[in-house]
Simulated scan of single mutants.
Amino acid sequence: MMRKIIHVDMDAFYASIEMRDDPQLKNVPLVISRNPQHTNGRGVVATANYIARSFGIHSAMSAQEALKLCPDAHFKQPDFPKYKKVSHQIHEIFHEYTDKIEPVAFDEAYLDVTENKPRIEDPVALAHKMQQEIYDKVHLTCSTGISYNKFLAKLASDYCKPIGLTVVSKEDVLDFLFPMPIEKFRGVGKKTAIKMRQLGINNGEDLYSWKEIDLISQFGKMGHILFQRVRGIDDRPVEWQRERKSIGSERTFDQPLKSIEQVDEQLHLTAIRLVNELKKQQKHGKTIVIKVRNSNFETITKRLTFDDYLNNQTDTLEYYGRQLFDEIQNIDIDVRLLGLTITNLDPLDFENIKLQL
């Protein structure tokens, strides 16, 4: 209850960057995605500006569906290197206030400001100051949620967008959560939400009325978590010193790969990118994972773990990547997405030492 947590969520981040850089896009329904008219209907919406959202367009929607909802939408190819650069600028601003920062994505992060660098006691005043500085320096807006834990801060940042600031104190918890639609509770996906509504759990107040043992019997471990969350309980700290668990590289293709020669070429390029990132992060690992998605959006992953660390060499990762690929798909090749990841990471100066006993 003593923590002061701020969740910062940039407003329509990718779209806002594009509108900032090209003011002509400010007054049109802008969708950040490949244009489905140029890709035979393929593509997924990364985000959309608020004009496009008024038509029902949202992230993770197929670009084809977005076009049907708004035939006049302007589609803009995502520029992730640019978005990453802007995200880095915003994180530099965060570090002026605290080093206890848990990034969630390019456009959002948790900040623990219980003790902060400017020594501002009031988290509302601190959030206002930070919002203004972000706007002054990168010309983008954000919404902030302030509370004593991560769960409530996340819900609060989404409560009043764009350019919102919402505070949830201990005294406000039930008033805030009771009318909340059950789908808003983190961990409640589409299937779980359907089951909950069938059980008569439509909002936070309905959830609060259930006994913990009954929620566990229906939803397992998630039942215990939801029992706590609807009571404003979330003891998770802001994980600002967590170790990176994996390093990977993947690519989605406009036209699916249809031959093993195409797959080999892309595995080679993926391995190059992955090796460069491993060297940059000064890491190596014992497990290699391949990820393959086909034109039906079915995703398969397969992994291989070794006793010793894999060499950070392109031909090594490419070789084992091909082995794993052959176990997944060696006939009727259809690859929309291909990726390689190294997990089980340790610093490069950490090695296994074999002793002759």
Results as ranks from 00 to 15, higher is better:
I328A: 03
H7Y: 07
I120M: 00
C160F: 06
E183C: 14
I5T: 03
F227Y: 15
P71N: 07
V44G: 03
E243H: 12
K211A: 12
K184E: 15
G285H: 08
D158I: 15
P179N: 05
F185S: 02
D9T: 04
Y208I: 09
H88S: 13
D99P: 11
R53E: 08
Q329N: 08
D235N: 14
A66M: 06
I288K: 06
P36K: 12
P103W: 00
E121C: 10
E277M: 09
H7F: 10
P118R: 01
F185E: 11
I201D: 10
P162W: 05
V230A: 06
S259H: 04
V292Y: 06
P179T: 00
F350N: 12
L317E: 03
K291V: 04
F178Y: 12
I93S: 05
R336V: 10
T166V: 15
P179V: 01
Q323F: 13
I300G: 08
Q37P: 11
D346K: 14
L338S: 00
L269I: 01
P78N: 06
R322W: 02
E250I: 04
A125C: 14
F94Q: 00
F106Y: 05
T314N: 08
G189H: 02
R322L: 08
A153Q: 01
A60W: 05
T299M: 05
K129F: 06
H74T: 15
C160P: 13
Y83R: 01
L226N: 07
D235L: 05
H224V: 15
Q262A: 07
E243Y: 03
